[in-house]
């Protein structure tokens, strides 16, 4: 394991020039992933279609996935990118891994190569769940990052299977009849664990030290490592500039996106969130600053505190129950 100070000082493959929204968590995640993977090995990225792909490979802007001044001849500093269809980032990356292994076994490649797939939650958990689960089942030695922002951000913020209870999306809009999305999200952590992944984690760059540690561990993993990165989406979740990291931190502490790490055959580790609801910050702290929960939570003008809107207590209680059930299930793996 490299020292954190060394990692921070590394060059990141993710260079300025992307058209990601200002305040997007994905660019912070990419910066960090770029630095951690700059460890002297060559890296090949397989990208499905998602915000992180369309906004970073955009012509005529400079390719954001670049090694700055490094020339392609510099073996360890250069890297490959393959953009594939929406749903198949893990499978295409698995095939790259297999090719690398074959070439290594005949001696055509001498140094080790890192193979990484990246998708959004729409691409990985809706249309691409089949691809993700079967890649895990085949124990492909890749690291699969899934950026979870709970919506199909690139097509206009429609509901995705990871959308939180009560969230207002363009296909589950909050109206007088409906309190937003009432379909409980897919238990993607449980699915990945049960499919037999070598490592399953949910971790946010809002906890930078832990993030670096988990990603480094994943790169060493002998089976498939799947890392879900909760990514507050400034445009889809509709919050003020500058709150991205704070929301990502709150999303963990309130239990919406608990930090989670489970290596195959070992007990799980749940961090930065209390199992006991009384010790956690109330869910209103996370929901309040976001317009997508505005129909459920409001700011009290006198106290300045976020509070549940009158008449919406039942929906928010349902959200609390869902969070507790989810946390309990995770703690049973610990």
């Amino acid at each position: 394991m490299a020292k954190i100070i060394d990692i921070i000082q590394r060059e990141s493959c993710f260079q300025p020039g992307s058209t990601l929204c200002a305040g997007c968590m994905e660019s912070i995640a990419f910066q960090n992933i770029g630095k951690i993977t700059d460890n002297g090995k060559k890296t090949i990225f397989g990208l499905g279609t998602f915000c992180g792909e369309v906004s970073t490979l955009q012509f005529p802007n400079p390719v954001a996935w670049g090694r700055g001044e490094s020339t392609p001849e510099d073996w360890t500093k250069s890297f490959g990118i393959l953009h594939h269809v929406f749903e198949s980032a893990p499978t295409i990356t698995e095939a790259i891994r297999d090719t690398v292994d074959v070439l290594s076994s005949v001696g055509a490649i001498k140094s080790d190569i890192q193979t990484i797939s990246m998708s959004g939650d729409g691409g990985a958990l809706a249309i691409g769940l089949r691809s993700l689960l079967h890649t895990i089942n085949r124990q492909a030695r890749i690291v699969s990052f899934v950026l979870v922002n709970e919506v199909f951000a690139n097509t206009g913020f429609q509901y995705s299977p990871s959308a939180s209870l009560g969230s207002d999306t363009s296909t589950t809009p909050a109206t007088e009849l409906h309190p937003g999305n009432m379909q409980p999200p897919l238990d993607y952590l449980g699915l990945a664990v049960n499919a037999g992944a070598g490592l399953v984690a949910q971790v946010s760059p809002a906890f930078p030290k832990y993030f670096l540690k988990v990603v480094e561990t994943a790169l060493e993993c002998k089976g498939t490592a799947v890392i879900f990165i909760p990514s507050p989406c400034i445009t889809g979740w509709k919050f003020a500039d500058g709150e991205t990291v704070e929301l990502a931190r709150l999303s963990c502490e309130t239990g919406f996106f608990p930090c989670f790490l489970k290596k195959k055959g070992q007990p799980a580790e749940i961090k930065f969130v209390e199992r006991d609801a009384a010790k956690r910050p109330p869910v209103e702290h996370f929901m309040g600053p976001q317009q997508r929960f505005q129909h459920l939570v409001r700011k009290n003008k006198e106290t300045g505190q976020f509070e549940v809107r009158p008449g919406k207590e039942a929906v928010v209680e349902e959200i609390r129950t869902w969070i507790q059930t989810k946390l309990d299930a995770l703690y049973r793996m610990a």
Binding site: G122, L129, T155, G156, Q158, P161, T171, P173
Partner: peptide, 30 residues
């Protein structure tokens, strides 16, 4: 399933269908 440039059809019909007793489902893929 959301896809540019057709997503607005789904978003518009979401509002209209319940008023006439209809139903909309967002699927996991096409």
């Amino acid at each position: 399933y959301p896809i540019t440039p057709s997503s607005e059809i789904m978003e518009t019909i979401y509002d209209l269908l319940p008023k006439v007793g209809g139903k909309l489902l967002q699927a996991e893929d096409e």
